[in-house]
Design a protein around this nucleic acid. Structure first.
Lengths: 329, 329
DNA sequence: GATGAAAATGTAATCGATTTCATTTTACAG
DNA sequence: CTGTAAAATGAAATCGATTACATTTTCATC
């Protein structure tokens, strides 16, 4: 509980000198340095971030905005962000918005009140207006999800292409009746994924069937079950389902099994994200793997550069189709 | 980017008066209050937590120590902690230790450097010595996991009784050959759960079979698969498996399915924790539900009271056995 | 209108560090 | 031994709030 004053006094030097030893930037005689270090040892001194942060006008905390902590999709990204942040002496504060503006505001306020130095937003439902406004004065990066054309740097993958490749895979193994379980198209990624889906069909001369496209409010397991229920009731039942999240696809799996049908023999299933659980289901899920860890580290680096006032450019990363039992038996 | 000085100047009052308006504690004339509020509006002023925190010698941040963010078991607890913390104007910093002392130290340092006001530890592998030492000067609560007899307040459930009830359920539906997939017994909860298992067997006159007790390094899916592989190779194959975490049980499920056996007809499975995914598997998992959200709110309240210097007592919460398809078909 | 207590406001110290600028010490050449 | 430039150190301002204490204002009462 000692402070820098007491260390200075005990070492017989000024606080400035102690500070120099602490930050290690300025030159200090080996002898005085040792005196100071002994005093630090003796008093069990730990520099207070409160004082340092005030003086430096920084908090060394970055915010990560996610809609919900329950979606494992964010795990690897968060790990990536965290490791990069930690290596630069930043701590991360995980902010669950529940896609509610009120909760979002709590965290925006943290930024305004200097409790945080920047934000990495992964919430597709984020208020883009406010975000845009904040980005004029604060460091903000969009990760994975992004609102187009607002001038906020982002890191993401090519959703359209990823979706195209997933559907193309289904077509190549013989499917022509392919359902799409999509998210609300107010989200850019949802529009892009539908476009990829349509492009694959078009390219293979498969006519678009509106009944095969379903929209869900959220990307969770229950929504997947519900959507699958509807699909199973269609007269001309699809032989394959592409869900834009693994949780949706896992919900579909469960529902198909419950109906006494077999995956992939009766219906093949493809997911999106390659969350840990996509490998634990029965059968294991074919899915699109985003480079999540990488995405996290890139986002963190971009944010820190933004905080330091450097200019940063948006980044589009690659992806990979992981073929497993739910499409190939 | 205005500070309190500028607000005071613009409103024609002293900084003390502005501060009084901000904190709302001291009495200020309606007229001056209005002047100040107008100035705040006009200058777009937001009080800096950096200044406030230094002056108040607090950071209003609490740390949550978890071994890994990938285990969904922690979700609900975290939500509980977060909501309670938020309501008291605290923010939470999620700290993944990977059960590594080095990472743990990073977060302990945050506490020592006044970057955090307290810690809720959910890491069973935490260094209890250091924790004990820290608890003399800082606010610390153990949640869910705890090292006994170190004098740090904790909130948990009665693991022995929960385990006893889970095994008793298996016995009641006719099983006598019951395997236990347990965690390393260096953890108190692992010892308690084995004791509950043994008590249930003893009470029903079932002799203990050492071969039926397996130990895993971690509580993950892969460890569950591995353990199940071993169990399937036993000469006298068990008809039921009790895993001390849902992830272990889900690993077992997958492995049983892969071996062409049926759950629960060939082998019944029981998990522990009632994570979201325990309901998404095929079949849905019978499991022990811990009151996770409640546990989180209680832990947070205890921590905040500790921070405020109040004395706090440990709490043991109830649990519930959730019977689903993996034991009853 | 004077008086005094209560209410409102202001002044200045404080929290704990960093950093600019001034001063002292060191080291080396002459 | 002296002079001087460079290196080391110190004094004090600063970051932005809160608050103890001092001072001023208000207002009921006589």
């Amino acid at each position: 509980m000692a402070n820098i004053q007491q260390v200075a006094k005990h070492a017989g030097v000024s606080v400035a000198t102690v500070s120099r030893v602490l930050t290690g930037k300025n030159i200090v005689t080996a002898k005085t340095k040792q005196k100071v270090e002994e005093a630090i040892q003796y008093l069990n001194y730990e520099p207070s971030m409160l004082g340092r942060n005030l003086r430096n006008s920084e908090s060394r905390i970055v915010l990560i905005l996610i809609p919900t902590i329950s979606n494992p999709f964010y795990f690897e990204i968060i790990k990536g962000i965290e490791n990069m942040a930690l290596s630069q002496n930043y701590s991360i504060l995980l902010c669950e918005t529940d896609s509610k503006p009120e909760k979002e505001e709590i965290y925006f306020d943290l930024l305004r009140k200097k409790m945080a130095d920047g934000i990495i937003s992964m919430d597709p439902a984020v208020n883009v207006e406010t975000l845009k406004e904040l980005s004029e004065n604060y460091a903000i990066i969009q990760c994975s999800e992004y609102g187009g054309g607002v001038g906020i740097p982002y890191v993401t993958i090519d959703s359209e292409e990823a979706s195209y490749r997933a559907v193309k895979h289904l077509i190549q193994i013989g499917h022509r009746k392919i359902a799409l379980m999509n998210s609300d198209e107010k989200f850019l990624y949802a529009r892009e994924r539908r476009m990829g889906y349509e492009r694959a069909l078009r390219e293979h001369g498969i006519p678009l069937n509106k009944d095969y496209i379903l929209y869900t409010q959220e990307l969770g397991f229950e929504q997947g079950q519900l959507a699958m229920k509807k699909i199973l009731q269609l007269e001309d039942r699809p032989t394959a389902v592409f869900g834009v999240s693994d949780l949706l696809a896992i919900g579909a799996l469960k529902e198909i099994n419950a109906a006494g049908l077999h995956v992939p023999n009766d219906i093949a299933v493809v997911g999106f994200d390659k969350i840990d659980f996509s490998n634990m289901t029965n059968p294991a899920l074919t899915t699109v793997a985003q480079p999540m860890y990488k995405m996290g580290t890139v986002a963190a680096r971009m944010l820190i550069e933004k905080i330091q006032g450097k200019p940063v450019d948006s980044v589009v990363l690659g992806f990979e189709l992981v073929i497993r039992e739910s499409t190939t038996g």
